[in-house]
Design a protein around this nucleic acid. Sequence first.
RNA 1: GGUCCCGUGGUAGAGUGGCUAUACAGAGCUCUGCAAAAGCUCGUACAUCGGUUCAAAUCCGGUCGGGACCUCCA
Length: 491
Amino acid sequence: MNIRLFNTLTKRIDAFSPLDPSRVRMYSCGPTVYDVAHIGNMRAFLLPDLLQRTLRVVGGFDVSWVMNITDIDDKTIRDSAVGSEKWRPEMGTQTTDALANLKMLTAFYAEEFHRDLASFNIVKKHFAAQPLATDYIPQMQALINDIMSSGYAYVSEGSVYFNVSAYAKRHEYGRLFAIDKENFREGVRIDADEYDRESVSDFVLWKARKDGEPYWDYDVNGTNLPGRPGWHIECSAMSKEILGLPFDIHTGGVDLRFPHHEDELAQCTAGYHEHDQATFWVHNEFLEVEGKKMSKSLGNFYTMRDLVAKGIDPLDVRYAMLQAHYRSVYNFTFDIVQGATTARKKIQDYVYDVKERSSFVEREAEGADPVAARVLRTTVFTELADDLHTPKALAALFSFMSQHSAAMLSPEEALSVLGVLSDINDVLAVFEISDRPVVIIPDNVSAIAQARWAARTAKDWSESDRLRADLTALGWTMNDGKDSFTLEPTL
RNA sequence: GGUCCCGUGGUAGAGUGGCUAUACAGAGCUCUGCAAAAGCUCGUACAUCGGUUCAAAUCCGGUCGGGACCUCCA
């Protein structure tokens, strides 16, 4: 099925096709590993996950998905410095080697990051690579050299800056985001750090070494400029090195459009002489919590760990986020996560029912016309293919479920429907295709239930109610059927 | 200050000018000793004022309100 995507470069929804027909190359801006992931991060990582899954399952493409891990920046340096309050014993023992300290802190959080991703069903096998910025310093230096040779960079007090005005004379600066240099907000920080750049809009490619900070030697025309890479240069160098330019899709949060992505693009044009770093740029909107932008000062800041500690299943959060389109601001509330739990369980129960029904046949009948399965696949996939419209995809799924109860499907139909559900879940990843888990009922619970059933059959309501109270106390719910009962653990 | 987006029922959230979004919550019904579960049904929704149109939640303008980016930020 053909996929259509909103492209920030063209500012409209365009039909997608990869430059290399054999595979889609996609790069996502990953986390800076100085802390555990918060739910806003998770929304930003959900987008590329959903996208690569849709490209594979709905589009039928092979996908090479790369997500970088930024392990060198102001925050990681600050928090790994000797004497930092953020240092935790689990990270190891600090030494006088600033780079070693940095590596310990970032390795710790990178590990936490992978755990958070996994809890969100963003799985390792789908990544082609998760490169660390510090492993690509030579490539970054080479790129900076290339940019200097092109005349778009200058050295100032040991740092290297990108010269935006020189670049803008021959290239378009502002392709992803129309900036208005004449009207910078009043009171904007002109130059917060000590580095000396010629123009406010210039950005740093290489930061001069400061005492006590990690650094790499950098030979520029025979002069050593010890220091570390700027923020934007990492992604340009790593995406080129790993995927090659131009590649197909670049993803990130809306906040990265400017300056991060705009600068990445400019660096690739200036240094690699590629007009397009990527042909499609896809950005997810932000998430708010209870109607306000999430921030620590507002007290509405939640990490994944916070939610898990509250007893929330991360997959319910994933489901809740799927109910909103990735390009609209999503309002996260705890009520809605609770609703997501119920809704997701409903889908899961349906899958169990269909699975059970399909177990009566070995394989799909010859020449069978699985109309139901076809309807399900078409309605859901069409929505996903249309700029990842997950709310409509879920709506289509629920409509299908209400029109095709498992009981009215023939076993053959059930089997083909199950196959489609499996494909849908390869994209949404919020339920599981499996047999209904066998509930192990302890003997004492079973005995009480039997006793209650007997009392109930004898119309001894008070005894029946008393025994039900006993079961409730033990954490079990007894559901009376017409001729039999079921027991399930109370959630 | 500049640029831009959004205001939909109790909540979240889709909506391409005329046709049921969907989910959760709630109400009623079926079933039922009571409940639970399941199924069915239901609800004076489109910020506001004006305009365009045979027709506007959907297009245009004003007003009010909220938000984003321009600065580290997912």
